[in-house]
Design a protein around this nucleic acid. Structure first.
Lengths: 221, 221
DNA sequence: GTCTATAGATAGATAGAC
DNA sequence: GTCTATCTATCTATAGAC
């Protein structure tokens, strides 16, 4: 082995590059998500690990690269979760509604990820652009969506002229906005978009809207 | 008068509280929008005015209050623009489509405002919450939307169980996301949501979706 | 690989003269 | 109301011992 230390040493301090860097990524994810890129403090990240600030620079090089690594890990986890989308063998309408629900639930369950994405958008996706792991990765779910759309059109139930990427944008926008903009929306209009007793209502509403769009009678137009 | 200076002195330096504070707000709007709250530099804001940093503290008290003032002015301008929504005397379907188009156009025309709103959401709307000018102001447009919805339901063309605030959230989410998330979306999926040659397509798409939702045949469900 | 100590730059905020 | 000068704190990043 490359180290004289015992690799199986849970909780102990010592040399374990994988564990140390994972711990740094955990703390960094929380800190960046809490405070944004400029607001995040490297000292604070270090304080929340069992290692020191020096190690952050040793492993990642700097604050910028650390944020890129945080994004890479977060998107990778998301892509893995999306692999679970198995809706190809039901009818197209049910499949799309299931897709809407999965997207809705995922956004609701990961507000921290949504904050990271907001930060990255604020910085014009410069970290994704320089990341070989992320630039242009798209989503495996999109291929599934494309097949569902094709099946629905073939059977004549879907009439809308829309592709998988566009549909993904329409579905994501509501799911994302509901979480990302809940605070200004609530402060201005006095209504909490993430209130638990309204959750099922909004979820069904989005499903209804997407299905209505895809299946609308376009004979007259 | 409270000042010995000539108040009509365009471009000259000297005492003009209204002009000085407006100039500070202009510079602050740009700087906060560019760099976020934590990333914005008070020195940079001062450098972009004809006055000094000291005056920012004199007029506004601090960075936090300055950002609140920036938000207040931006939202006030938006509300004034919304007064121009005059769609009550057309049929409900045309009125809603017009509302969608106005919302779409407004978001596209004001990316700087969208960045400010994203910043404020990142800070959980704490500045709106403490602002007497902004907390709970809602939107005058919402009352108009409410009347359109009621008219449509009365005539039997609208079947959806949705109120004005919910409809506003659905429309805004796509318009907002298209601008706010264009960078990560583009970097991941290779498609620019704000590409000018796709603009009309997305605009019509959102209109189609909202109308399809509102007018869907719900006899079977 | 890990630590302590600190360099070097810069931030928000203010003192005090005029 | 406006200016110059500066305080105090803090930040990212690194040097250098072990």
């Amino acid at each position: 082995m490359s180290s004289a230390e015992d690799p199986a040493r849970p909780g102990g301090r010592g040399r374990d590059a994988a564990r140390t860097s994972a711990e740094i990524l955990d703390a960094a994810t929380r800190e960046f998500s809490r405070a944004g890129f400029a607001g995040a403090r490297v000292d604070e990240i270090a304080a929340r690990t069992r290692t020191t600030k020096r190690m952050i620079y040793y492993y990642f090089g700097g604050k910028e690269q650390l944020f890129t690594a945080v994004l890479e890990r977060a998107y990778t986890a998301l892509r893995q979760a999306e692999q679970g989308l198995d809706v190809e063998h039901t009818d197209p309408v049910a499949a799309i509604r299931r897709l809407v629900e999965l997207t809705f639930d995922h956004h609701e369950a990961h507000p921290e990820f949504i904050r990271l994405v907001s930060i990255e958008n604020f910085h014009e996706a410069e970290h994704i652009a320089v990341s070989r792991k992320l630039a242009g990765i798209g989503s495996p779910a999109l291929e599934v969506v494309g097949r569902i759309l094709a099946a629905g059109r073939e059977r004549g139930v879907f009439t809308a002229d829309v592709d998988a990427v566009e549909l993904h944008a329409m579905i994501s926008s509501f799911c994302f906005f509901r979480v990302s903009n809940r605070h200004t929306f609530g402060a201005l209009f006095g209504r909490d978009l993430v209130a638990s007793d309204q959750r099922d209502r909004y979820r069904a509403m989005l499903g209804d809207m997407v299905i209505a769009y895809l299946t609308a009678d376009r004979a007259a137009g």
